[in-house]
Design a protein around this nucleic acid. Structure first.
Lengths: 333, 333
DNA sequence: TTGTAAGCGTTATCAT
DNA sequence: ATGATAACGCTTACAA
């Protein structure tokens, strides 16, 4: 493995000149550059990134930590962040955290030094963990469980969007609307969306029946399908379902089909995320379309700001994204 | 940012002793360890990974480069590889390549030094690029365009599985079976699967009608839906479709629904990949279920072998994975 | 059991 | 325009 020294020797110049050639510094005579280039090719020289990182204290790579990589939503999130970062000349490296402990690990600087900064999409962290976010390293949190923490934060428009989604079901004539969400024990995605749902019911003067609040362990397709079947088979009376994620909604569509319930005729279904798949489902899925691009852009911008500033972090931002509703067949087109 | 030196000073020992504590070396007196630990906590010491990498030449992280992160198949692939690597004590960092050029970049040692090795899921590389794979760095290729190259290689059972999938359609009574694949100009996923399809037709004594070979630009849902509509609207006579990916198949199901064609009654559809979603589609999707776990295990094993061996690489392996068929509603259950 | 010295490969600074 | 020197933070080899 050739080093800068080897190239320098081969080209008959100093290591510094080789470095200048590599980094496109201006003051290199064309003939010298030529010689060096030739030597680099001949020796098949590759820069040692570890050494460069050590010296520069920068890698040009940011980390993105997500709870799972095999999920429609996080896949979309990753793609969006990668695009936004690319525009700013940064590469992205995606890691799966899978557990709350791993989320905290991802934060720990020890793992972190490979990246100039970290975008952490946290599902498991709670307000109680907020203090542990006080790291002297650029971090932006994507998620809903932590506000006003010692860290920049980009969140979904959970309340407003859920209210709109529920209102849409009401406008389409639903009056027994169920919500499918996770255990909403504290401030998290599910509880925020549940609040929006409740508000919409109240706005419309509809009663809120606890039996219609359906909580599942995971927000995945399987859980959605199982619960939908149970709801139908138990004789629960409902004519609309607001699912707090599109994955849940995909499952619900399937579960309702299993028991012969027609969507949207008998029950209307709306999701949240506007995942790529939702457009192609049968029936196609009405859903909340968060401004993924805008939020990704914002998250990357915030992170870059922290990366480039030298003073200790201060004035942390809480950004809430935009959204719109996409109406498709599952609520009657 | 505290360094080992700072900790050493604070604890009244040498940097080496601190290093020994960090790395759990045996010969450290408990009382010394105590002192050092205390100093580390007090100074909030974190090891600088860049420096350690430079010195050790190892990172404990392997890279996984995929064409796109927002795709059901690559999401599944990433999750499977991560699981397999975790079992072997390695962390995985996922990167999106998006283009053939980026795939070659990912290979280039310059990017690569951040990882102990790279698993490259190559979509764009061709046999012509094989020589460029001759890198003195651990690499395992996942994909179908390169065989017998200077690199370990894990491939899907493309031919056999496609033949089985097509045969299944024939057994279910289809005799005008279309295939939806990418431009099959050379050795790649699409052409291998196309060959299996042709073989199955021939096995059954069915004619192979060129009009039934439908090539699309991308193997995504949108392309599947558009092409299915075109096929139906153009009056093409077909009663079965073998899609070379589940994403294509998802689109086809949607496209056929758009034009009022019933699946599986009028047309049967089978996919390839057994992506998470396929179980929950309406109708649920019959598909080839490759042995994802086995292949991931194999890829990680091969990579580790290369990482741990010091001699120049030799005896490269071409591994082909296992598969089974999953029969669901889209071919009549 | 602990410490010293040297070097991993690169680049910033300053000198020539 | 080019080069000498030192330093980034860590660990291996060896000495004490």
């Amino acid at each position: 493995m050739a080093t800068i020294q080897d190239v320098a020797k081969a080209a008959g110049v100093s290591p510094m000149t080789v470095s200048n050639v590599i980094n496109d510094h201006p003051n290199v005579r064309p003939s010298t550059r030529e010689k060096v280039m030739e030597a680099m090719v001949r020796l098949d020289y590759r820069v040692n990134v570890a050494a460069r990182n050590l010296r520069k204290g920068r890698t040009g790579v940011i980390g993105l930590a997500v709870p799972e990589v095999n999920s429609a939503y996080y896949g979309l999130l990753a793609a969006t962040i990668i695009t936004a970062a690319e525009r700013r000349g940064l590469r992205v490296s995606v890691e799966q955290t899978a557990s709350r402990e791993n989320e905290l690990d991802a934060l720990s600087l020890s793992r972190n030094r490979l990246y100039d900064g970290l975008i952490l999409s946290a599902a498991g962290l709670e307000q109680a963990d907020a203090e542990r976010l006080r790291v002297d390293h650029p971090v932006v949190i994507l998620g809903d469980r932590i506000f006003g923490g010692p860290v920049d934060h980009v969140a979904m428009p959970n309340f407003d969007a859920s209210r709109e989604a529920t209102r849409h079901l009401i406008e389409r004539g639903c009056c027994r609307i169920a919500i499918l969400c996770g255990a909403a024990d504290e401030v998290d995605t599910s509880s925020l969306r549940l609040t929006g749902y409740r508000q919409a019911l109240q706005d419309a003067g509809l009663p809120s029946d606890p039996a219609l609040i359906q909580q599942v362990d995971r927000l995945g397709m399987r859980e959605g399908a199982e619960r939908a079947r149970e709801m139908a088979e138990s004789g629960l009376d409902f004519d609309g379902v607001f699912c707090v994620t599109d994955s849940l909604a995909m499952g619900v569509l399937r579960g309702l089909a299993d028991v012969g319930t027609r969507v949207p005729d008998q029950v209307k279904v709306i999701g949240f995320d506007n995942v790529m798949e939702s457009e192609f489902l049968i029936p196609s899925l009405s859903t909340v379309d968060p401004d993924h691009d805008g939020m990704a852009e914002r998250a990357v911008d915030l992170l870059i700001r922290r990366i480039e500033q030298t003073e200790p972090p201060t004035g942390h931002q809480d950004v809430v994204g935009d959204f719109s509703l996409v109406i498709r067949e599952s609520t009657g087109g």
